[in-house]
């Protein structure tokens, strides 16, 4: 018989190896894209013969990308902020009150989690045409609000659950009316949850693609839509360069969120000891 300690060691190594392989699978595309982005030739080849930065310059100068980026910022700013307000307020009433149609409204607002984005996109496209709304930013923003709302709702709801009601009771007992309690006690204590909910919503909205493909027009297309169109037409490494910038930017945001908000808590995956 193999002694138990050796057996456990072997098991540990096998586990470690498996995790390393999976992590490699996760980071492989990002690594490959990074290599491709520095390839001097416009045609894909591995390993690249000559290296250069020029595709980064091309990507930054490409008009569709620039416009997509700024459109994306506009859509993201509006939709994540609206979703934060709408979702934050509704999370508050779900947590506190009973009222008619509560679970119906909640169910409807959560359902985009399992409804395919192409269905949502098509729905808003048709609806906009039916009510005579032109295909401007409004439709895109509304569509994004609906798509990111479930995440905001959940994030704020979890923070509200973890907020001890005695703080608000204490404030009320000291003579603070509902509005004052809300602004001086509830909101400040909820701030981390609100910030992470907003961040969540913003990142998701900025990256949303499928529904955006349906509801944006040439004038309002967001960055993912512009990238998709580019990939369909061109094969040069500009897109790889843009992807690298994208990956670095997102990873930095995530690392920032992790350091300041504790992603583990937000995602509800802290080990209970």
């Amino acid at each position: 018989m193999i002694p138990r300690s050796t057996y456990q060691k072997v098991l540990g190594w096998v586990g470690l190896l498996a995790v390393l392989v999976i992590v490699a699978f996760l980071v492989l595309p990002a690594a490959v894209v990074t290599i491709a982005a520095f390839n001097d030739k416009p045609i894909l080849s591995f390993p690249p013969q000559t290296w250069s930065w020029r595709w980064f310059g091309r990507a930054l100068a490409y008009e569709d990308f620039r416009q997509g980026f700024f459109n994306g910022l506009i859509v993201t700013a509006w939709s994540s902020t609206i979703a934060l307000c709408v979702g934050g307020m509704f999370a508050f009433v779900i947590d506190r009150y009973k009222f008619p149609l509560k679970s119906a409204i909640e169910g409807i607002l959560i359902s985009p989690l399992v409804i395919p984005h192409f269905t949502v996109g098509l729905g808003f496209l048709i609806l906009a045409a039916q009510v005579g709304l032109s295909r401007g930013f409004a439709v895109v923003v509304i569509c994004h609000v609906i798509l990111v709302l479930p995440f905001v709702l959940r994030s704020v709801y979890v923070s509200l659950r973890n907020l001890d009601q005695s703080y608000e009771h204490a404030a009320a007992s000291l003579g603070a009316g509902p509005l004052r309690v809300l602004t001086t006690v509830t909101l400040p204590l909820l701030l981390p949850g609100l910030v992470s909910g907003w961040l969540f919503a913003a990142i998701l909205s900025f990256n949303e693609f499928t529904a955006s493909l349906f509801v944006t027009s040439q004038r309002t297309q967001t960055l993912p839509v512009a990238m998709y169109n580019y990939v369909r037409e061109f094969a040069d490494p500009s897109m790889a360069a843009l992807s690298v910038m994208y990956i670095v930017g997102t990873a930095a945001l995530i690392a920032f969120a992790n350091a300041f908000l504790g992603l583990g808590k937000v995602l509800n995956i802290e080990q209970s000891h």
Partner: peptide, 9 residues
Amino acid sequence: PTYRRGIGM
């Protein structure tokens, strides 16, 4: 409501 009752808690 609580905030007009003048209690301390």
